[in-house]
Every structure is written in structure tokens, then in C-alpha cells.
């Protein structure tokens, strides 16, 4: 019997609070049965656990397997041994060579590091979009005096935004604004680093994950906001 190689993927995957390392796998296949991606392009969560267990990091990171997953957690939910399968997959993604990670994610992450948002939208353009949509809302009865409290200090609630809402889905900005307006909420929107989506979570890069979180923490401190609202 050959000895198992050590696996970085296995050791860097965060442990579930009640979870166990990949070595506990019984090979029962419950994860595979519960996963909607099983069988598509050879995907199988059990295969991923097995590869991490045997230390086949390079083979796993070079395959398309980690990127086919939606990280939905159905496999883990079913696993009788509580193995952190999603964590293994995320760690495997982090080991993928930079030029082999999906282009959209790579570009978004570069933009995030450079400009504080995934779109690379400048502060001025962001302000223009927000004001424009607010003016449209002013045309609706009951919202004539609505304004967006950009950069307001001491608000109860600081909102971050999903980048979609200042890109292709501007019209969906107004739902929360209407609710806030009628509830007379004390809220604010930061003029920069408003990005609420953290692609470092998907790409498996903890450094990028941290930068995105730091951006938000700095906004909270700068504006003295008490609560934080994420887009989802």
C-alpha cells in the first residue's frame, strides 16, 4: 500500500465547527447523490475528497472540478462524517494557477484591489448613477423628497451594494430605498468601497478576501455607523 502524500488543500480548508478532515471519508457517496452537479463533466464531490485525502493537490487544482461547483453545501449537509467538502473545494481553487482561474473572476479581483469595486467604477460615476436613480424615484408619489444619504456620519445602518445594482440592474436600487424612506431609517451609503460582494470567497484567495473586508471595516469606522447591511 502506498503512503498518502500530505495535502495542503486538506490542511488549509477551514474546519467546520463540528467537522472533520477529509480522512474521515467513508466513501459512502451520500455527497455525490445529494449534489446536483454530480455526473456533469465527471464532477463528483467524493472524488474531490478522495483526491485531497491522497494528497493529489496538483492534479485537483489543475482540473476543472473545483470550478464546476456552486459551493451550495448540499454535499456537506448530507455528509454523515461532517467533512468540510466546500472548504476543500475553495482551498483547491486557491491553488489554481492565476492564468487558469476564470477570466471574469481574475479581472474582477484585479479591479477590486485597484479601485475598491469589482466593476472598476470611479467614485464620480458611482455618485452620478445614485443621484440619477434617486431623481427617478422622486417622481413616484410619496417619495418626492427622498435623497440618498451618501457619506452620512453616525447613521444607524451602513449599506453595501451588489455591483449589479450600479451596473445592469439600476432599477433594483429603489426597493430598499423605498422601505428606508417610509420606515424613516437613519442610513448611509459610502461613496467609495461600497462593494458588498467578495469574490475572494469564490477564488479561494484569503488575501483578497481580507482586503474586501478591510474596505468595509474602514467605511464603518470612518462614518461611525452602528450596523452593517450586506446585499445578500
Amino acid at each position: 500500500m502506498t503512503e498518502n502524500a500530505s495535502s495542503l488543500i486538506k490542511h488549509t480548508a477551514l474546519m467546520r465547527p463540528d467537522g472533520h478532515a477529509a480522512d474521515f471519508c467513508l466513501g459512502c457517496g451520500t455527497c455525490a447523490a445529494g449534489c446536483p452537479m454530480t455526473g456533469i463533466d465527471g464532477f463528483d464531490p467524493r472524488k474531490i475528497v478522495r483526491m485531497a485525502m491522497l494528497g493529489r493537490d496538483e492534479q485537483l487544482a489543475a482540473s476543472s472540478l473545483p470550478w464546476l461547483c456552486t459551493l451550495c453545501g448540499r454535499c456537506e449537509n448530507a455528509c454523515p462524517m461532517g467533512i468540510n467538502i466546500v472548504g476543500l473545494i475553495r482551498s483547491a481553487r486557491g491553488l489554481t494557477e492565476k492564468d487558469k482561474t476564470p477570466t471574469a473572476i481574475r479581472k474582477g479581483l484585479e479591479m477590486l484591489l485597484e479601485t475598491g469595486n469589482i466593476l472598476g467604477l470611479p467614485e464620480e460615476d458611482f455618485g452620478f448613477i445614485i443621484t440619477d436613480v434617486a431623481e427617478e424615484l422622486n417622481e413616484q408619489p410619496g417619495f418626492e423628497d427622498f435623497t440618498v444619504p451618501l457619506e452620512k456620519k453616525d447613521a444607524r445602518l451602513l449599506c453595501t451594494l451588489h455591483n449589479k445594482l450600479v451596473n445592469i440592474q439600476n432599477e433594483d436600487l429603489i426597493h430598499w430605498w423605498k422601505i428606508f424612506h417610509l420606515a424613516d431609517e437613519s442610513w448611509t451609503l459610502p461613496a467609495r468601497n461600497w462593494e458588498g460582494v467578495n469574490w475572494g470567497l469564490f477564488s479561494g484567495e484569503d488575501q483578497v478576501l481580507k482586503v474586501a473586508v478591510d474596505n468595509i471595516v474602514q467605511n464603518m469606522e470612518r462614518l461611525d455607523a452602528r450596523h452593517l447591511m450586506y446585499p445578500e
Binding site: T70, C72, P102, A104, W199
Partner: peptide, 11 residues
């Protein structure tokens, strides 16, 4: 079916 960044891949 769209989570985990899958919507951002070419898959």
C-alpha cells in the same frame, strides 16, 4: 445553480 462564482466562469 449560479452560486459560488459559477456564473462568472465560461461553464
Amino acid at each position: 445553480g449560479g452560486g459560488g462564482g459559477l456564473m462568472l466562469t465560461t461553464l
